Amino acid sequence: MDIMARLASWQIRPKLIEHPPLHRCDDADRLLVDRPGTRLKNLFLRDNYGRRHALLLTRPDKQVDLKVLSRRLGWSRLGFASPARLRRYLGVDPGHVSVLALVNDMEQEVELWLDEELREGDDFHCHPLRNTATVLLSRADLLRFAGYTGHRIQWLAVPER
């Protein structure tokens, strides 16, 4: 899928920055990739039974306490979803995850969670379904994107270890 064409069809035209592959948040630090805006860490999570899935966006340096978060939300033990689940639900491989992958979740099986700490952020850094580029998605465009894909944003106070 050409995600940029899909975004443009929704009147979302974010800036696209090409760069070497970035598999993890700290890869950008090592390569001294400097971009304006709000960097994100994207965690694809599942409950203990593999029946519920969520994409959590938080700041890159945050060590999320999944045990406390799962208790707060009433989910059975939260854990990281496997690469196979990532491909099945979001259509991307590890290292390519971003909120834009929700375009592949046509059944809205994945919940979208945003850390409260990101509320004031703007120009969110998102992989456009590949890790060799970054899209700078404004807060308004992020909200509009979620609406077009049918995903409701849940703002959470994400606990830190």
Rank of each mutant, 00 (worst) to 15 (best):
L16Q: 10
N131S: 04
S82E: 10
R161P: 12
S82P: 05
P21C: 03
F44V: 11
L31T: 13
L57R: 04
L56Q: 00
L136V: 03
L156P: 10
A133S: 14
Y89V: 05
V135L: 14
D105C: 11
V103S: 00
D115P: 05
H96D: 04
D26V: 05
V64I: 06
A8S: 13
P94T: 10
L56D: 03
E109F: 12
D26T: 15
D29I: 14
R30L: 15
L118R: 03
P83M: 06
E111N: 08
R88C: 05
F80W: 08
L156S: 05
L32N: 15
Y148S: 02
S138D: 09
L143K: 10
H96F: 01
L32R: 15
R46F: 05
S70E: 01
E111P: 07
N48S: 15
H53W: 11
R139E: 11
I12S: 12
L40K: 02
Q154V: 12
W75Q: 10
H19W: 08
L43T: 05
M106G: 11
L56V: 12
Y49A: 06
R46C: 13
L22S: 13
V110M: 01
K67E: 07
L32D: 15
G147S: 09
L142S: 09
R87D: 13
G121W: 13
L73Y: 01
Q154M: 09
